[in-house]
Design a binder for these strands. Structure first.
Lengths: 198, 198
DNA sequence: AATTAGTAAGTAAACGTTTATATACTTAAA
DNA sequence: TTTAAGTATATAAACGTTTACTTACTAATT
């Protein structure tokens, strides 16, 4: 039996992300993708059932999986509140800064009904991945450090400003001057922490 | 001369927003839109140059324009900091709550390169619309109430958690229990305010 | 060791459908 | 009667996906 060309499988994902980031999800087609990778369209269908399958696997496995993993790297659920949040912020920012294409698809996850649905299904089935963060927050609620909120509300308060700052970071990368400096990020992180402390 | 059917122009925009919200931007086509409005495809081209023109006008005029207007309703740039932010939050939340389809396109504005570009071009050309908010923030920086940040950073800190909470609100609308209650919103708003105060 | 049957990976080209947009015509009001 | 608003229909290109075929390798048989 002829062996799989694993490099090619990787190329499909990389180029797909690139097209989505540069031209938008609405401009990614199977034919365009095949041409860009320099393979036959049929080859994509050996690895993925259809376009929807490709997009969802790209989103869930390639993008969200790596993102969640990077977020939790060296994160200690038993850390002090400020220390823990600072670690999460630096993990997220450093990862996204170096993975612009993945970030683009993450943003689409909030708009596109297809990806959104996949995310919710995934979020409900496998919320364990963020368990250390839940644990961390729960501990601080019990300790009385922070207010008690539903977990999704914490996500909004803790991470959404950061994701917006990443957008700004990329926007200003193309311009002359970067406004999202380390100092600004640190100050924003402190603001978020301060807001959540009781 | 035969007069324009203004109702139809309105129907085009409403139905376009509906399709985008329900099926995604990538599933809006001119023919599908025409069929849904029960007109000829050509009629859309009388009112819009092409698909891109339609999308951008929908995004900028219909959605962002109305959104900014609603945000600033009865907003007083001379208000106390907490009072001002609370007003902005309640304006934004109440507007978006009742304009789910518009909200969907606003979210696409952060992902789609086409809309994103339109937004940036617009943001640079006509930043005056949010002038009262800039004025408000500037005043409080000078008064020493809050830290001095670039304006885009304030947007991230002040509004992005709220937009995430609106997403959560709609997500939970379909389920049994609403977690984004008035009390939760108010508490989040207070957290944001507290974080920004010096 | 040489041959060959079997099989999954891969390709080129095409399928029928849908896309954005254009042409040619009709309608309705000034 | 003129004129723009509107329709029905056509078009070429692009779409997702499939068909028919080739390639590269394994493993069993000579």
């Amino acid at each position: 039996m002829r062996p799989k060309n694993l490099e090619m499988e990787n190329a499909i994902r990389t180029v797909a992300l690139q097209i989505i980031a540069e031209e938008g999800l609405e401009n990614l087609s199977m034919q365009k993708l095949a041409k860009a990778v320099n393979i036959s369209p049929r080859t994509i269908y050996i690895k993925y059932e259809n376009k929807e399958d490709l997009l969802i696997k790209l989103f869930i496995d390639e993008v969200l999986g790596a993102y969640e993993k990077a977020t939790l790297e060296d994160f200690d659920p038993n850390a002090e509140f400020a220390e823990g949040v600072e670690k999460l912020w630096s993990n997220v920012f450093n990862y996204l800064k170096n993975n612009k294409h993945a970030f683009a698809l993450i943003q689409y996850g909030k708009s596109s009904p297809l990806l959104n649905k996949a995310y919710k299904d995934q979020g409900i089935r496998q919320g364990d991945h963020f368990k250390p963060v839940h644990q961390f927050l729960k501990r601080h609620v019990q300790k009385g450090t922070i207010n008690d909120f539903p977990i999704d509300v914490y996500r909004a308060l803790l991470f959404s400003p950061l994701l917006d700052l990443v957008t700004e970071y990329f926007d200003h990368q193309e311009r002359s001057k970067q406004i999202i400096t380390k100092a600004v990020l640190a100050a924003c992180c402190q603001a978020v922490i301060k807001g959540m402390l009781k």
